[in-house]
Write a protein that binds this DNA or RNA. Structure first.
Lengths: 335, 335
DNA sequence: GAAACTGATGTAAAGCTTTACATTTAAAAT
DNA sequence: ATTTTAAATGTAAAGCTTTACATCAGTTTC
């Protein structure tokens, strides 16, 4: 029933300890500049009345929020949540707070989240959603790092995988395993990752001079399009011996659908995915795929952002996190 | 090169519009109390100099952060990230910001995150990690809602699934399908959800008077323990015809391991899981399981928290989100 | 013993917004 | 024409911390 008896302020501590506000503040922020005796008195006073500095007042005075904004397109997607986990890891080390927003790929929502950069709630931003409305103007001095998906027109730093190279490696792996008639199931047309992975596929098959035997099927990263691609392949492209899927979900959808139609992977068709999401290794047959180290991606991006927030001058960089081909059970050598 | 020429304040707007600070503030917060003409002038002034209210100053003055703290044990786990997604959904509707923290089940980390409740950065908290250090004291007036895992000693509101009942239903379903020799693979011993699900299993088999034929195997929610349970079952418990796994990961681990040993699910053994994680339906055979509506769980918890933050007086409630048995391909009727 | 220095602490302003209260102006009521 | 009421706006304080600058008391130096 009793109204909370007012939260203690720094003045309450000062009064109790018999010193000035300034000294209390110093004990809390710069202990080394105050004498050991005073330090002790103040520390005890703080403890005894349970004082906690008011963050709002600190933010106002310091003009710094110690907070970073993270915008992602889909929180419920492990792909992003693992990156987020890496981000959080660095943030907690650096004593930063992370503010999170789901953009749902909606640019209005995205814009409203970015407001936090201007209203002082966040000192910088991490963008996982491949979009930044009006990327060209407006974001001059703001520390922003994009992750995974590059953003067209955005000149800041980026952390991600070299998708084209990785896709080339994936395709080359199929070629090395003896395959000459290969299909690619792509991601959504307008997605930059799709484009990069498709480009890698194209380069690899051109280089091997087998482009004429190879095809590309439109997908959208959902497992259902992997399934429909399976139907398509069975009906129209019986000659294909291997498939490079632009992500693991589609690979699994493909394999499941094939299995239901009595086509065994890898015996009758080889499949390679991309991402190495959690279930790629749990799925049976376990999916051969390109592993992206998402946790590390998050860590790296966050470190970069922190240094951008603290060091005024920081020239934008592009960082590629090493990827790795995980050989599992969906690719078979043929002769 | 040019140092940013000072962020505009409300006074700058006021000066430009030829009104007082108060009026500008009113236009921004309570447009209806100011005349249409002034409103227009001010709005234009705001736009023309690109003014954004300083959040820190607002927080300080209003003594409200419009921010909610969310603590979860593992960001990278879809189970939690889907709940998070529901939370975010309500937060964005209510124009609240969400502050996120990974506790890693570390109580020190958890405590340091909870500081945000005291330093004014967050108005309330959502706890997904089943722990609240010193739950009894200290959290008197603070709006806190626990989700999914109940917290012993914590008297606040909770949103989750009635795990015991759901586990009973899952077990009863196996019984209804003719099974009489049933195994349960449990979660980690010290986890409250494990305990509740195990209790449900026990009740169901007791009620059906088949407890003597049934066994319980220790697991830890990881798919690997599902696999080792499979080995155990094959070696020592050939009589078992159905298994209730305390979560889907273990169910998949179990099924995969069985498949590798030539034991077909559901033909030779029926399996039911719990949670209905994303891959439960993509996995082959698709996993029969109990669906928890995690998105809705997050939504409900957040709504509850919001009402707790705004309405001073709110008595704690316990809310169960309806669950649903998803019949898929891992359970078969026997005679 | 005076001057210069060092270390510890205090004083007070600044940071920006909101809001209770006061004031002004115009319209309505008498 | 005077008084009342209502609507619109202004004034100024409060919210809490940090920090530049000032002060004070010892030490050191010559």
């Amino acid at each position: 029933m009793s109204k909370n008896p007012k939260r203690p302020t720094i003045s309450d501590v000062a009064k109790l300890a018999g010193v000035s506000n300034a000294t209390v503040s110093r004990v809390l922020q710069n202990p080394e500049v105050v004498s050991a005796a005073t330090r002790k008195t103040v520390t005890e006073a703080v403890k005894s009345i349970g004082y906690r500095a008011n963050t709002a007042a600190q933010m106002l005075r310091r003009n710094r929020a110690n907070t970073v904004l993270v915008i992602l397109p889909d929180l419920a997607n492990t792909f992003f949540s693992e990156i987020l986990s890496g981000i959080e890891n660095v943030a907690s080390e650096a004593n930063l707070t992370i503010l999170i927003g789901n953009s749902n790929n909606d640019s209005a929502r995205c814009l409203s989240l970015l407001e936090n950069l201007w209203n002082g709630r966040a000192d910088g931003a991490l963008l996982l959603n491949g979009a930044l409305p009006d990327a060209e103007d407006r974001y001059e001095g703001k520390p922003i790092v994009s992750i995974s998906e590059t953003i067209s027109g955005f000149l800041g730093s980026h952390v991600g995988t070299n998708n084209e190279l990785a896709a080339m490696d994936a395709t080359q792996f199929l070629i090395d395993m003896g395959h000459r008639k290969i299909a690619h199931i792509s991601g959504p047309k307008d997605n930059i990752l799709s484009a990069q992975r498709m480009a890698g596929f194209d380069k690899a098959v051109s280089r091997a001079d087998i482009a004429a035997n190879c095809i590309s099927i439109d997908g959208d990263f959902a497992s259902s399009t992997g399934a429909s691609a399976a139907t398509n392949l069975m009906k129209n492209h019986a000659e294909i011996t291997a498939v490079f899927c632009a992500n693991d979900e589609m690979a699994m959808g493909l394999v499941s659908e094939l299995a239901e139609n009595g086509i065994g992977v890898p015996d009758q068709l080889s499949v390679i995915g991309f991402d190495d999401i959690n279930f790629a290794s749990i799925y049976r047959p376990s999916i051969t795929t390109i592993r992206q180290d998402r946790f590390e991606m998050g860590r790296k991006a966050m470190s970069l952002l922190v240094s951008q927030i603290t060091n005024e001058a920081a020239t934008p960089v592009e960082v590629y996190i090493p990827y790795k081909l995980m050989e599992r059970d969906t690719v078979k050598r043929i002769t």
